[in-house]
């Protein structure tokens, strides 16, 4: 029950943080002078297209861009009624993308869950690769196995992702017949979910997962190896050996449990760095994830779109840290029982 209470408390602080983050995001995207519409209006005026100016002016009022900034923020969040009553993020209305002339939710809809999918796959990949490799490298430290693992790891860290992507696409396609670019075969786009579509998506996921995950995995492997080496020198490991444990079981039961903490704590950091770090990769790989959308929106000052994407990334980060915090409390009794009298 203790743990449930902690989770609830942690959820509360998460919401609070999210609120603060929303203020910051709104402030930052409004830092550059002007907004999408006022830029457009200036452009129309210069070229004498008065009819279009009227339409833009109308939109400005429609989306309350003529109001002071703090009111704009409250309307955007849905704390204050806008021109059409309460209709902000809280009410599920994410705003209008001026550049695409469509609602934000329509633009990001698909790429939202594709982003989650790609990143989830990458995170799983990171953990599945880093965990065994890190442990083996530590257990066999200063042997050929360790050096080989480190070499591959550094290769992964040092190779630019887009380059890796191109190489993998070329050879993957040539030798294994893997698809190039995109997240599904073109014929499935916009189609309802079907078994064939899932297969196509999974097939398309292989290369992106590998590309996005490699550097994270090698970094994490090195960290796990270092942590494990620290732990292996501790007296409790000796105690376990003196008890007569088999090395493999001893490794898994004692040092790994302790070395695992930073590993878990990393979940929170992994998510955002993957979303923002994978922009370039997404462009190169032609993935319809949210990264390229964000880049475009920021460039053209499409404020509602970029605001929403940033909020989404922030939410991912916060959820990641929350998960890792709750997991840590579950894993480590020292954190759990802090303050309990011995």
């Amino acid at each position: 029950m203790e743990i449930l209470r902690y989770a609830i408390y942690r959820f509360g602080t998460m919401l609070l943080t999210l609120l603060v983050v929303s203020v910051l995001i709104f402030w930052i995207i409004n830092l550059p002078p002007g907004d999408y519409l006022s830029n457009q209006i200036a452009e129309f005026r210069a070229s004498g297209q008065e009819s279009l100016v009227a339409k833009a002016e109308f939109l400005r009022q429609e989306y309350a861009l003529d109001k002071p900034l703090w009111q704009q923020y409250l309307i955007w969040m849905g704390f204050l009624p806008g021109p059409h009553g309460f209709s902000g993020m809280l009410q599920g209305n994410f705003g209008w993308s001026f550049e695409f002339d469509r609602p934000v939710s329509e633009i990001v809809g698909d790429s939202l869950w594709l982003t989650v999918l790609v990143n989830l796959a990458a995170v799983l990949f990171v953990y599945m690769v880093a965990l065994p490799l890190g442990v083996i490298a530590a257990a066999k430290s200063r042997t050929m196995i360790d050096y080989t693992a480190a070499f591959i790891g550094y290769l992964g860290l040092a190779t630019p992702n887009f380059l890796l992507a191109l190489i993998l696409f070329y050879y993957g396609n040539k030798h294994l017949g893997l698809p190039i670019g995109g997240l599904m075969a073109p014929e499935y786009e916009g189609m309802p979910m079907s078994w064939d579509k899932v297969k196509s998506i999974l097939l398309h996921l292989i290369v992106p997962t590998f590309v996005i995950g490699t550097s994270g995995a090698s970094a994490m492997m090195q960290r796990l190896r270092a942590n494990m080496l620290d732990e292996l020198g501790k007296p409790y490991v000796e105690t376990a050996v003196a008890k007569g444990m088999r090395p493999s079981r001893m490794l898994a039961k004692y040092p790994l449990r302790v070395a695992f903490n930073p590993f878990v704590a990393d979940i929170g950091n992994l998510l955002p760095s993957m979303v923002s770090g994978s922009v370039l990769v997404s462009v190169v790989l032609g993935l319809q994830t949210i990264g390229p959308v964000l880049l475009q929106a920021l460039k053209s000052q499409d404020m509602f779109l970029s605001g929403f994407v940033l909020m989404f990334v922030a939410l991912l980060t916060l959820i990641g840290t929350m998960i890792s915090d709750v997991l840590l409390v579950l894993l480590d009794p020292r954190i759990r029982y802090e303050g309990r009298d011995g």
Partner: peptide, 24 residues
């Protein structure tokens, strides 16, 4: 040797603070 460790010959270490796993 594993069968002797902890079974026929047991060992106590210097630092009781660090000789037990903190997580078990």
């Amino acid at each position: 040797l594993r069968h002797i460790r902890g079974n026929r010959i047991a060992m106590i270490f210097q630092e009781p603070m660090r000789s037990l796993s903190p997580l078990h």
